[in-house]
Amino acid sequence: MTDRLTIATWNINSVRLRMPIVERLLRDHGPDVLCLQETKCPDANFPEGAFRKLGYEHVAINGQKGYHGVAVVSRRPLAEVERRGFCDKGDARHIAVSVPFGGTSLRLHNFYVPAGGDEPDREINEKFGHKLDFMGEMRSWLAGEEARRPAVVVGDLNVAPFEHDVWSHKALLKVVSHTPVETELFEEIRRAGNWIDAMREVVPPTDKLYTWWSYRAKDWDAADKGRRLDHVWLSQPLAGTLRSVAVLREARGWEKPSDHVPVMTVLEG
C-alpha cells in the first residue's frame, strides 16, 4: 500500500494578519503538512489554536517578534524538531522536523533565506553580504548527511535561479535575487547535495514559473512581473516519489494576500 503526502510551503508575511487566507488554503486544499515562512511573531503568540481546530494538531515553531520566523503545522506527528542558526545572527530562519512517510520518515527542512537588501554589493550593503554568507553555510551543511537521507527542503529561498524564473532575465541581472553571484551560489548548493529541483522536474525550464509578485504593481496579474523565489528540493532517496507540484497563483488575488503564493508538492511512496 502506498503512502501519499502533500506538503505546502508559503511565505505568509505575518501569520496572524493573514490567518483567514491560511485557513482558506487548509480548508480548500488540505495539505498534510504546511510550512510557513515570515510568520513575524514570537512562539508564544503563534495561533496554534486556529490550526488545531482545522485538524493540524502537530505544530513546530521557530518564531521571532516582528521579523522572520518559520513554522510547520501538520496532520501527521512531527519528531526530532531542530532549529538551526546561521551566521551567528540569532534569526529565526530555519526549522527541521521528521514526518512519517512510506512506512518510515522523511526529514523536512523549512528555510527563510535573507532577502539581501537592494544593492547587490556586499561592500556597501551588509544585508547582501549576510545573504551570501547564509547561503554559504547552507551549502556546507546540505552537501552532507542531510542529502543522503530521505529529505525535502522547502521555503522562501529568495533566489530566482534560472532565466525563466523571472519576468525578464535581462532586466533583472543586476537586481537582488537574480544576480549571477546569487544564482551561481544557489545552484552550487543544490548540486553539492545532488538535490532535485522538484518544481522544474514538473514544469520545463523553458516555461515561465513564478511564486512571487510585488505589492508595488497596480495590477499584479496583468503586469505579471513575477519571480520564482519559493522552492522545493528533494534528496536523491526520494527521487521516485514525486507525483506533482502546483503553484496556487490564484492565492495572490485573495483578500489581504501575501506577495508570495503557496506551492503544493505531492509525494507518493
Rank of each mutant, 00 (worst) to 15 (best):
M1L: 10
D3F: 02
T6G: 01
T9W: 12
N11L: 08
N11H: 08
I12A: 10
V15F: 04
V22N: 09
E23A: 14
R24G: 07
R27G: 05
R27V: 15
H29P: 05
L34F: 03
L34T: 02
T39K: 00
A44P: 02
E48G: 15
A50D: 13
F51E: 01
Y56A: 09
H58E: 06
H58N: 11
I61V: 14
Q64F: 05
K65N: 11
H68C: 04
H68R: 11
G69Q: 01
V73I: 06
S74Y: 04
L78P: 00
L78F: 02
V81S: 01
F86S: 10
K89N: 12
R93K: 12
R93P: 05
A96F: 03
V97M: 08
V99I: 11
P100G: 03
T104L: 10
S105A: 13
A115Q: 13
D118V: 13
P120T: 09
I124N: 07
K127G: 13
K127M: 13
F128Q: 08
D133E: 14
E137D: 09
R139G: 03
W141Q: 08
L142W: 11
G144W: 02
A147G: 03
A147H: 03
R149K: 12
P150D: 06
V153K: 01
V153G: 10
D156W: 00
L157Y: 01
N158K: 00
V159A: 06
K170C: 06
L172D: 12
P180R: 09
T183S: 10
L185V: 14
E187V: 13
E188Q: 13
I189H: 04
R191V: 11
R191F: 09
A192Q: 08
N194I: 05
N194P: 00
W195T: 04
W195E: 07
I196P: 03
D197A: 06
A198F: 09
P204V: 01
D207I: 10
W212L: 05
W212S: 10
S214V: 11
Y215H: 12
D221N: 15
A223P: 05
A223T: 10
D224I: 07
D224Q: 04
K225R: 14
K225A: 11
R227N: 01
R227L: 07
V232A: 02
W233V: 00
W233K: 00
W233H: 01
Q236T: 12
Q236F: 07
L238N: 05
A239V: 08
L242G: 00
R243Q: 14
R243G: 09
S244C: 00
V245M: 04
V247G: 03
V247M: 11
A251M: 14
G253Q: 15
G253W: 15
S258A: 06
D259F: 03
H260L: 12
V261R: 13
L267D: 08
G269A: 14
